[in-house]
């Protein structure tokens, strides 16, 4: 065992890259759930985003267009969910699960010709002298634009939800859709937009996996990232800041346990592999231990179908 082989700078830098897909997907799902919709199809939207992003980037040779393609793919899949649950009033849990299975299958089919290809590289942003600051430079200023966009999105989602009228209406719809309807707000329209936003974020997260993190296309490459994003939203008590914390914690421990495995730590590999899931959930549960505060944060209409008949 040789722990000195683990370089903290590389570790922290890798942590940020590993966390970004989950962060993006979780932020999208946070907005969806704040609008009162439970979309369990995050995994499916992520993987479709991964292949759409990869395919578009390969065909156009432009990774930025690739990311847009990934977001579009995720949003398109989410709109199927939106149509089924908002207009046909299908059960959200069952539809979400079906969406995941559908996304996994569809992405495998689209991705048949794309295995083993290299994607065009997404360059890191050049911060000039900032990147030369010892420690801080390589950790924080050597990433691509998507990482910074995802961090900006955390602030933007927080600001929009708590400080803008649109955010207030979205929270109102998620809190009590009957009351929101009685006040004249368009419940279904708000939810459609939220679901599409969530799909686009999940797709973007998936595209980040296939275009930057791996960067290749393999079937089923999301490997549960969508599910952990869902868990992070709930255990993070629907707060963007905690979702960021949860995602980085999960990404960090994932990277750390890989490093520990490589260093030959005498802990069974199975325990190391499960550690990111266990620790992330434990930490977030402890943070959110005050049940009454959390209950106040949980959107009260979460997962309930709305129909303007009554």
């Amino acid at each position: 065992m040789d722990l000195s082989s683990i370089n903290p700078v590389l570790l922290l830098s890798a942590l940020i890259v590993a966390s970004t897909p989950i962060l993006l997907a979780a932020l999208g799902e946070l907005v969806v759930e704040k609008a009162g919709v439970l979309n369990l199809g995050v995994e499916g939207m992520m993987i479709l985003g991964a292949i759409c992003g990869f395919a578009v980037a390969v065909e156009t040779g432009n990774p930025v267009i690739g990311f847009l393609g990934g977001a579009a793919g995720g949003a398109a899949l989410s709109l199927i969910f939106a149509f089924l649950t908002q207009y046909l009033l299908s059960n959200q849990v069952a539809t979400g699960l079906a969406l995941t299975l559908f996304g996994l299958g569809l992405s495998a089919m689209i991705g048949q010709g794309y295995s083993g290809i290299q994607a065009p590289r997404t360059a890191d942003i050049d911060f000039g002298p900032l990147a030369d600051i010892p420690f801080i430079g390589p950790v924080f200023f050597t990433h691509d634009w998507v990482v910074y966009a995802s961090l900006f999105l955390v602030v933007a989602v927080w600001y929009a939800l708590t400080r803008t009228r649109a955010g207030l209406i979205l929270r109102a719809v998620g809190e009590n859709h009957d009351a929101a309807h009685a006040l004249g707000y368009k419940v279904v329209r708000v939810r459609m937009l939220a679901i599409a936003f969530g799909g686009a974020c999940a797709g973007l997260g998936g595209a980040y996996l296939s275009l930057v993190r791996v960067p290749q296309w393999t079937e089923g490459m999301t490997a549960g990232a969508g599910w952990i994003a869902l868990a992070i939203v709930v255990f993070g008590a629907w707060k963007p800041g905690r979702v960021l914390l949860g995602a980085y914690l999960f990404g960090g421990i994932s990277v750390l346990q890989l490093n520990l495995q490589a260093a030959g730590v005498k802990v069974p590999v199975e325990f190391l592999s499960m550690s990111p899931y266990v620790i992330t959930i434990l930490v977030l549960v402890i943070i959110s231990a005050d049940r009454s505060r959390v209950a106040l944060n949980a959107p009260a209409s979460l997962g309930r179908s709305f129909h303007a008949s009554s």
Binding site: L168, R171, A172, E175, N176, D178, A179, A180, A182, L183, L296, N297, P299, A300
Partner: peptide, 8 residues
């Protein structure tokens, strides 16, 4: 039936 939002 009150049209209020309890969490707000």
């Amino acid at each position: 039936h009150f049209s209020l939002f309890e969490a707000l």
